[in-house]
């Protein structure tokens, strides 16, 4: 893969005597979307932290061909005592860009609201806006929809895909939800139990219009994937 935004070779990570990541190899293209599915504790979030420079103690080689990263955390991580606009200018003080993404994420008019005054879905949208305003070349989604109900979740996923089509950034999604994985990725990596390995790399052959949970091809792909995960987990 010539134009890889991220190249990982033989990545290993231990916490003391506990081996969590055991020799991962992967490459992600510049505008590729990948999803990672695996059991709890298999090192998915640790891997994301390594990419985001939050975890520096690991073995192996990581080649990062990006300067800007956007990280959508599992919890919104908004500063409670400052409003939405202040939370966003805290990381990137370009108000025009913030206004653009607030509009794109349907948050216009909520600039002066405190995080506690927003619904769970709105907080997660602010979390996403914060990740997008830095114009990331790589967007990381760490189970950001786990606490959201289905309609909110799918609406946000649709917004992410629209923006990604316009701005062509790569996405790494960590999730437990097969539907989310299919909606947000071109490739799905299945991880084994700890110490984890990448045991399957599955290409999702769906057109964007087929990425609809009611589409026959989507349902087929979901069922195929569920079968594989079930088989692999036995």
């Amino acid at each position: 893969m010539a134009d890889a935004i991220l190249r990982v070779e033989n990545l290993k990570k231990n916490f003391g005597n506990l081996s969590v990541i055991d020799g991962w190899n992967l490459e992600i293209e510049r505008d590729e979307r990948i999803a990672m599915i695996g059991p709890s504790g298999c090192g998915k979030t640790t891997f994301l932290k390594i990419i985001a420079d939050l975890e520096k103690d690991f073995h192996g080689r990581i080649e990062k061909n990006f300067e800007r990263i956007g990280f959508v955390f599992q919890e919104p991580r908004l500063i409670p005592w400052i409003n939405v606009m202040e939370n966003l200018t805290f990381v990137f003080p370009d108000k025009d860009k913030i206004d653009f993404f607030l509009k794109a994420m349907r948050l216009e008019g909520f600039e002066d609201y405190l995080p506690s005054q927003l619904s769970g879905g709105m907080k997660q949208r602010v979390n996403l806006v914060r990740a997008l305003i830095a114009d990331p070349q790589l967007l990381i989604l760490d189970e950001p929809f786990s606490s959201l109900d289905m309609p909110v979740k799918f609406a946000i996923i649709e917004d992410i895909n629209k923006l990604r089509d316009q701005r062509k950034f790569a996405i790494i999604t960590v999730t437990h939800d097969v539907k989310e994985a299919i909606l947000l990725s071109d490739r799905i990596l299945i991880l084994s139990k700890r110490p984890s390995k990448i045991i399957q790399d599955i290409k999702i052959d769906l057109q964007q219009k087929e990425r609809d949970i009611s589409d026959t091809k989507f349902i087929q792909a979901e069922s195929e994937l569920m079968k594989r995960i079930f088989f692999l987990s036995r």
Partner: peptide, 19 residues
């Protein structure tokens, strides 16, 4: 977790302390 968030976005230390 807020400090970690600020580190991901490379927010200057002075701003992290202040805010």
């Amino acid at each position: 977790s807020l400090i970690e968030m600020a580190r991901v976005y490379k927010v200057p230390q002075v701003k992290i302390i202040r805010t």
